[in-house]
């Protein structure tokens, strides 16, 4: 191993202008502004609400269309039901000796609305 003693020896020195100042203080990550977080939250919520309401309105409109179509087959079903009823053996069961059970009308029963069956009256055409 040969060493070239004629070369110029240079000592390690700081860069020109010196080293940058050491950051010896506490280092914290850069924070996002609170207003931005607030805005982002409401933006996301707004988009979700828009998507939900759009689907809901579409569903309600579909329901309306469906109801119109069902109302169009109503007279058909009604007519068929009438004919089948008149063709069937229908008779008034209250002409027999069987009596409906008596409901106590003096108690709290009278506060129950009629459609819940408390004071049920059955009507027959024949």
């Amino acid at each position: 191993m040969t060493i070239n003693y004629k070369q110029k020896w240079v000592q390690d020195l700081p860069p020109p202008g010196g080293f940058p100042a050491l950051e010896y203080g506490r280092q914290t990550p850069k924070m996002i502004s609170g207003y931005k977080l607030f805005g982002a939250t409401f933006l996301i919520m707004g988009v979700g609400t828009y998507i939900y309401l759009r689907g809901r309105i579409q569903d309600l409109q579909d329901d309306d269309v469906e109801r119109v179509r069902l109302s169009k087959i109503l007279p058909i079903v009604q007519a068929e039901n009438d004919i089948m009823f008149l063709g069937a053996a229908h008779k008034n069961v209250y002409l027999t000796r069987w009596m409906p059970p008596i409901v106590n009308n003096n108690g709290l029963y009278r506060f129950i609305p009629r459609e819940y069956g408390a004071q049920k009256e059955t009507t027959h055409h024949h």
Partner: peptide, 23 residues
């Protein structure tokens, strides 16, 4: 048929002609 049903009630015998027509 529906006009008859509205005017004369839900008695199946009254609107039978119209019911047969529809059916």
């Amino acid at each position: 048929f529906e006009k008859c049903k509205i005017e004369k009630g839900d008695d199946p015998e009254v609107c039978l002609r119209y019911a047969i027509a529809v059916s």
